[in-house]
Design a protein around this nucleic acid. Structure first.
Lengths: 125, 125
DNA sequence: CCTTGACTTAGAGTGTACTCTAAGAGTTAT
DNA sequence: ATAACTCTTAGAGTACACTCTAAGTCAAGG
């Protein structure tokens, strides 16, 4: 007997809004969620796990369209494992590049900050 | 005698489009650029330096509105050095948080990738 | 019975940051 | 002088990812 969650509970647990959960389903990021007899969505722990991974992809800057491509592959089962692996490895590189870029920009920021610190010192004298 | 650049040259050197350069000026990220007699913009090296810094702020996720606030402070001169320093230090923290977040998401990605690698191995046997 | 509240749908609206269009002016090359 | 090029402006349009609205269904509580 597996736990199930209403959309409200799913929203609370994932940190996405109910609107966004329906939107993600509508655009195909989430496969159609099971329904109760009254038509209400019932999210399984598996759904929530999938959504967590989607959040990870989004938070690392993957566009929704690419996430959709990944989701489509996932729905096709085992024969797409290679493609999915490729997609994730490529994305991994993109994330590494992002981090490296941020590092470099951080260095610029640090230089500016120490310049301002000196400047502030100077002006206060 | 200082070098000056047309908007086309400025676009080329900064990597921003001419459209974006005019837009940045329009919204106040860049103070009104000097004009030639024919009304064409003439960017100085100083302008280009400022634009480079704007790019750094943008690339690290600062919203245009906040960049505008920073630009406004900069225009007010020395008495805003403290405020600018504060703004940049706060932004620096935001960038550090971003990097940390990316690191954590990268770890999730790595786990998924190694899972897929195993899975691929298994299926190919 | 009536209200409250959670849910449903299709589709419209929003915010952000560009990005482009249209119409026109001035410079240079043939 | 005709074409090609670069620039100008105001304002419209676009892409993306949500985010919200309106109208309606259904079940539980008072």
């Amino acid at each position: 007997m597996e736990a199930e969650y209403s959309i409200q509970e799913a929203a609370h647990q994932t940190g996405l809004s109910e609107h966004t959960l329906r939107y993600y389903e509508r655009v195909g990021l989430i496969e159609p969620v099971e329904r109760a007899e009254n038509g209400h969505r019932r999210y399984t722990p598996g759904d929530l796990g999938w959504i967590e991974f989607l959040k990870c992809l989004r938070a690392t800057g993957m566009p929704v369209a690419q996430m959709k491509a990944y989701a489509d592959l996932a729905r096709q089962g085992d024969q797409t494992v290679g493609s999915r692996l490729g997609l994730l490895e490529e994305h991994r590189c993109a994330v590494l590049r992002q981090i490296e870029q941020l590092r470099q920009h951080l260095a610029v920021l640090d230089r500016k900050i120490s310049y301002y610190s000196n400047e502030k010192e100077r002006l206060e004298r």
